[in-house]
Nucleic acid binder design. Structure first.
Length: 361
RNA sequence: UGUCCCAUGGUGUAACGGUAGCACACGGGUUUUUGGAGCCCAUAGCCAAGGUUCGAAUCCUUGUGGGACAA
């Protein structure tokens, strides 16, 4: 493919992806804008407020930019894929008393795999997104590195991308900071887009009430997730909980239990329908196991490898060693880490480079 | 039934007779491409009725509600 070939740009309607498309267009690429429709708010009347990436407003904003700059824009209906890969996992994880990490799956399967299928159809070799990160290549391996804007680093949610996906990806915002991108949007006259607030909450649950969402999606919710006991580590009953999906490891708020010192969710026991509570100290552990591992920079992990591991999105990371174990990876931290949560992702780095990641067992 | 002890926000507790404070919980905000954490702010109380005193959560009396001894 020539340098200035066709490229598919995923446009959410937000500043980041808008400027990404703009930059590529300026650089002479043959840009095709795509806005993915992964969810239908109207069919799940939790709220009329549409704040997520699939709202009409967002689609319109993306289209407006495409029209202004003069490149084609399509809407891609990925609701089925989204249901299959993201929603179903979201529900089953809660059923298993785990805490799902939908953004990671959405990136891997929707924003990349499904989008690349569309790219094939449109004869595009590359796709681009508005992430603040670098794609690098080391011999035959492709890997993501953190962007220059560390506070805006999104690499944590990108660990699941396959080599195939990575080899066809471009991140036009890699060298920029969020502030610079906003300025570019303003300077180009896209004030409305530049001033949009950051997205937050789970995109398919705009009212942020994910228990309400589960209630609507799970048959006989009350029977599946009955009330039960809060207990301490010795099994002493401390109070009543409202059903396992209301809790996640490390949670403090909403326990409605006054112990004189802060109490946190330390464990969630599906077998006995108990939520174990304890003090902050009880949250620390010094190792964890990962499943569904995907590797970026190296084709395999050598036992004892030194890395930095992030265990949640906003986590500065903890030095650790990796070991192959039972087809997954065991992470042994140099210092204890708080609230390691089953279902969340652990991503390991070497400097700014992603070595790989996996789901916490 | 006799003696003794206790009673303070939603919970657990402080306050020589001199402005009722703390922790936790709850609520709000901040933050964030997930959940959670963190940080900031706020609401809220002297069991009841009398009395002593310039002044009572504090001392006295009675009542009410708990608890411990006592047969």
């Amino acid at each position: 493919m020539s340098k200035n070939g066709k490229i598919l740009v995923a446009m959410s309607g937000g500043v980041d992806s808008s400027v990404a498309a703009m930059l590529l267009h300026e650089q002479g690429y043959d840009v095709i804008g795509i806005t993915m429709k992964v969810w239908d708010y109207a069919s799940f009347g939790g709220t009329t407020k549409e704040t997520g990436c699939c709202s009409l407003d967002s689609i319109n904003d993306a289209r407006y930019l495409a029209v202004q700059l003069g490149f084609p824009h399509y809407i891609l209906d990925l609701r089925e894929d989204f249901e299959k890969h993201v929603i179903s996992n979201f529900i089953s994880e809660y059923k298993n008393a785990r805490t799902p990490n939908p953004c990671v799956l959405c990136n891997t399967h929707i924003k990349w795999e499904a989008l690349l299928r569309k790219a094939d159809m449109l004869d595009c070799e590359f796709i681009a997104t508005g992430h603040y990160a670098f794609i690098n290549q080391l011999q035959d391996r492709f890997y993501i590195s953190k962007g220059n804007d560390e506070i805006k680093d999104q690499s944590y949610v990108l660990w699941g991308l396959t080599q195939q996906s990575l080899s066809r990806t471009m991140f036009p915002l890699n060298i920029y900071s969020k502030t610079e991108i906003k300025e570019m949007a303003l300077n180009s006259g896209y004030d409305a887009i530049a001033k949009k607030s950051e997205s937050y909450e789970i995109c398919f649950i705009p009212d942020n009430d994910y228990r309400g969402f589960l209630k609507r999606r799970v048959d006989d919710f009350d029977a599946q997730f009955p009330e039960g006991n809060f207990v301490d580590k010795n099994g002493k009953i401390l109070g009543k909980h409202k059903g396992l999906p209301f809790y996640t490891i490390g949670q403090r708020k909403g326990l409605d239990i006054a112990m004189g010192v802060p109490y946190y969710v330390v464990d969630i026991k599906k077998s006995t329908n108990e939520v174990v509570l304890g003090e902050k100290e009880a949250l620390y552990s010094d190792s964890t196991e990962l499943i569904g591992v995907n590797l970026h920079k190296y084709a395999e992990i050598t036992d004892g490898m030194d890395v930095l591991v992030k265990v949640r999105y906003k986590d500065p990371g903890t030095a650790a060693k990796l070991f192959n174990k039972n087809g997954g990876i065991e992470v042994v931290f140099n210092n204890p880490v708080s609230a390691i949560t089953p279902g969340q992702s652990a991503v390991f780095y070497e400097g700014k480079d992603i070595i790989g990641g996996g789901f916490i067992r």
